[in-house]
Simulated assay, not measured.
Amino acid sequence: MKYANIRDERKLTDYRVAMDTGITKSTFADWKSGRSKPKLEKIATLAKYFDVPIEYFLE
């Protein structure tokens, strides 16, 4: 998932992103395991946080 790539590039942890965005660490774990897919509102939150267009995560 592109989220993991950008998180690693910026030397962040799921914990830090969770604290900064309000998206729970368990949500990230569910995405990674395939138990759930990110909803558009959470993708928009991540795009704003990482200062990238929403399309970055939708490609």
Results as ranks from 00 to 15, higher is better:
residue 57 F to H: 07
residue 55 E to G: 02
residue 23 I to G: 00
residue 24 T to G: 05
residue 13 T to Q: 04
residue 41 E to M: 08
residue 7 R to E: 06
residue 17 V to T: 14
residue 33 S to E: 08
residue 47 A to S: 06
residue 50 F to R: 00
residue 5 N to L: 09
residue 15 Y to E: 11
residue 6 I to L: 10
residue 46 L to V: 07
residue 20 D to V: 02
residue 45 T to K: 15
residue 9 E to S: 09
residue 39 K to M: 12
residue 29 A to F: 14
residue 57 F to R: 03
residue 52 V to A: 08
residue 21 T to G: 01
residue 14 D to S: 15
residue 52 V to T: 13
residue 28 F to N: 00
residue 58 L to R: 10
residue 39 K to S: 05
residue 48 K to N: 10
residue 26 S to W: 15
residue 27 T to D: 00
residue 37 K to L: 09
residue 49 Y to K: 02
residue 7 R to W: 05
residue 37 K to N: 05
residue 30 D to F: 10
residue 27 T to P: 01
residue 26 S to I: 14
residue 40 L to I: 12
residue 51 D to M: 10
residue 29 A to Y: 13
residue 42 K to L: 06
residue 45 T to R: 10
residue 46 L to F: 14
residue 26 S to H: 14
residue 5 N to E: 12
residue 1 M to W: 01
residue 13 T to N: 15
residue 56 Y to V: 01
residue 16 R to T: 14
residue 31 W to L: 05
residue 19 M to C: 05
residue 1 M to D: 05
residue 4 A to Q: 11
residue 28 F to M: 00
residue 36 S to C: 06
residue 26 S to G: 07
residue 51 D to A: 15
residue 3 Y to W: 08
residue 9 E to M: 12
residue 53 P to K: 09
residue 54 I to D: 04
residue 21 T to R: 04
residue 53 P to R: 15
residue 55 E to K: 04
residue 20 D to R: 15
residue 31 W to T: 00
residue 13 T to H: 06
residue 29 A to N: 07
residue 56 Y to D: 01
residue 36 S to T: 15
residue 58 L to D: 09
residue 52 V to K: 13
residue 24 T to N: 05
residue 15 Y to I: 04
residue 38 P to K: 08
residue 10 R to F: 04
residue 41 E to Q: 12
residue 35 R to P: 02
residue 30 D to K: 14
residue 5 N to K: 11
residue 53 P to Q: 13
residue 1 M to Y: 03
residue 51 D to V: 12
residue 20 D to S: 06
residue 49 Y to L: 03
residue 30 D to Y: 13
residue 3 Y to A: 06
